[in-house]
Design a protein around this nucleic acid. Structure first.
Length: 580
DNA sequence: GGGGGAATATTAT
DNA sequence: TTCCAATAATATTCCCCC
């Protein structure tokens, strides 16, 4: 297509677009307002319902898989969960969200009768600017394998096709076959709940090597049509078909049919796909005709796109989850078209980033970029286990995790300056404590030293999960640089005459945990004030910790001898209370 | 007040 | 009878310090 044509084409589109806006905006203000009020009232809250909705799990609405007894299913889930620690925590979270919404609504009360023409003008300008970024030249396809892990299992074991089956364990399912879905059994559902919904459900453990094999075959097909395809997980990828389409007579739909056929021939597995002008819309489209189907949203017609998006439920949009759905619903926004009607209010009540995001969704504008090779920003390990509060056990769990993380970092040749520990209490409250160091670390020993410190500050705890995470990372190789940095910034212990210059540069660098003169530090374990350089301070803490460990072991033995009394570390003043 | 780091929340697979 | 994951990214909120 020539540039000339391009220009004409787009100016035509601008007109179309304005018509669309006018059309939508033509009703008089009062009338619109009435309508919205009604909508808001219709949305009036039912706390039970929202909680049940939460419990039903994230995938309830996303993939509308027939409406088997949704009520019945939700009720069974509710009954199975009632009274558990998990349930109680869900209630607390749900209340927190309700509070957050109430806060937004009371802000809304203050502005709802105001004349918002000014903010309307601002938002209209934003819309105009966003329009400039609309790209209708790309043909993006999102391919999603149907019930991937389950289907791979069925290949090896065809009897599984005849019975409801799910892949995963008692604690969590990864996916289920379509027979199981008819019972309401879905991914991200704990297995024991699934068994309540479908007692004859067959549970299959995960076999990653098989899924990776299958995934590689699928990817080999993708490669033929877009060598830069963007894999999102084993069973999902984006392809930019623009270039390939330019070499053939095929329509986008025909090409994608062909791709799905080739996937089937290569793996005996079915896939669903969506084709649109950007990644967001392509993903939305791939949900429309699954399983084993595809949907094409014409990529070069702005008005078709605007019409498509207008009636799309906001929840269908990737990035809008259960919480955002509730927040927006309380403001009368259910479909993407509502975003435009409520734009002035949303502008006042949402953060700039969320507001911008919602405008893009209303316009059907999304990213088409396939920039791979974004370097990893963090790496973590975490494990769930049965309730644990004994410091000795906690330390051995921590040790284990540090070993694992060290291995993973090694694999990726990474080191980092920020380390965090995550604790999930038996009541499901999550605490994360982190520390940034002046130098990069990577060995299990160093990681353990820091995380021990962080852990001890939190004692006593009674937890069901522990995790550690490294961030502020960098490729190893560049060690020399970090080491030099470390030494130039750390004042030499014996050298009390740090020059004025040094002080200046230290301040300019303003690195955390580096001070100009020897600092007076408080040992997190014994609470004593110490005047030591970093290295000696760390040494002290290490020793102090091992003393605490010994104490803990002794105390533990004592406790055991006495009776099974539970918490063993209540005499230490708990360092910091966490505010919620 | 505002910059910046730490803690927390949300989302996705 | 019990029983709700692991990993990563990003946004938002909280809080401390100049």
């Amino acid at each position: 297509m020539s540039d000339q044509e391009d220009v004409e084409h787009s100016s035509q589109l601008v007109e179309e677009e304005q018509d669309f806006f006018l059309d939508d905006d033509s009703g008089d203000f009062e009338e619109q307002f009435e309508l919205l009020q009604e909508k808001l009232e219709a949305v009036a809250v039912d706390n039970e319902a929202s909680l049940r909705h939460m419990l039903a799990g994230p995938s309830t609405n996303k993939a509308g898989l027939g409406n088997i007894n949704k009520e019945q299913v939700n009720k069974i889930i509710y009954e199975a969960s009632k009274g558990s620690a998990f349930f109680e925590h869900e209630k607390i979270k749900d209340e927190a969200i309700t509070k957050r919404i109430d806060a937004i609504l009371s802000k809304y009360e203050l502005i709802k009768n105001q004349n918002l023409l000014f903010e309307q003008r601002i938002t209209d300008n934003m819309i105009r600017d966003l329009e400039q970024t609309r790209d209708l030249t790309q043909c993006i396809c999102h391919v999603d394998m149907d019930a991937f892990y389950a289907s791979v299992e069925e290949l090896e074991n065809p009897e599984l096709k005849q019975i409801p089956m799910a892949v995963g364990g008692l604690s969590m399912l990864c996916t289920s076959n379509y027979l199981a879905r008819a019972f309401g059994v879905r991914s991200a559902m704990p297995g024991f709940i699934a068994l309540k919904l479908c007692p004859q459900l067959k549970l299959i453990p995960l076999h990653f090597p098989k899924y990776i094999d299958a995934s590689n075959k699928v990817r080999a097909v993708f490669e033929k049509y877009d060598p830069n395809f963007l894999p999102m997980s084993l069973d999902e990828a984006y392809l930019n078909l623009t270039e390939y389409l330019a070499t053939t007579d095929m329509t986008p739909s025909q090409l994608v049919e062909k791709i799905r056929t080739e996937i089937f021939e290569a793996t005996q597995l079915t896939a669903s796909a969506g084709i649109a002008c950007n990644k967001t819309l392509a993903k939305v489209c791939s949900d429309i005709n699954k399983p084993n189907g595809q949907y094409y949203l014409p990529i070069d017609s702005k008005s078709t796109i605007l019409n498509f998006v207008k009636d799309l439920k906001i929840r269908q949009i990737p990035g809008v989850g259960r919480v955002t759905e509730r927040v927006l619903e309380s403001l009368g926004v259910v479909k993407c078209g509502d975003i435009y009607l409520r734009r002035a209010v949303l502008y006042k009540l949402l953060s700039p980033i969320s507001f911008q995001f919602m405008l893009r969704n209303y316009l059907g504008i999304g990213s088409t970029s396939f920039s791979e090779e974004v370097e990893r920003k963090s790496q973590s390990v975490e494990r769930t286990f049965s309730a644990m509060s004994n410091p000795t056990e906690l330390l051995s769990k921590l040790h284990e995790l540090c070993q694992l993380l060290e291995k993973d970092l090694e694999k990726n040749n990474l080191m980092g300056r920020n380390i965090a520990i995550k604790l999930k209490s038996v009541t499901y409250e999550v605490r994360i404590r982190s520390k940034t160091m002046p130098s990069y670390i990577w060995t299990a020993k160093d990681i353990e030293r820091i995380t021990k410190e962080l852990l001890f500050k939190e004692l006593p705890v009674n937890i069901r999960l522990m995790g550690i995470r490294m961030s502020a990372m960098k490729q190893r190789g560049s060690e020399d640089e970090s080491v030099r940095k470390y030494f130039t910034k750390l004042p030499l212990p014996e050298n009390s005459s740090a020059t004025a210059d040094n002080k200046m540069s230290n301040r300019e660098l303003s690195e955390p945990n580096v001070t100009e003169t020897l600092p007076s530090l408080t040992c997190p374990i014994c609470n004593r004030q110490l005047v030591l350089d970093n290295e000696n301070f760390n040494k002290h803490v290490d020793e102090c910790l091992s003393k605490v460990e010994v104490k803990a072991i002794l105390k533990d033995q004592l406790d055991r001898e006495r009776l099974d009394s539970v918490s063993s570390t209540s005499n230490r003043p708990s360092a910091k209370r966490v505010k919620r």
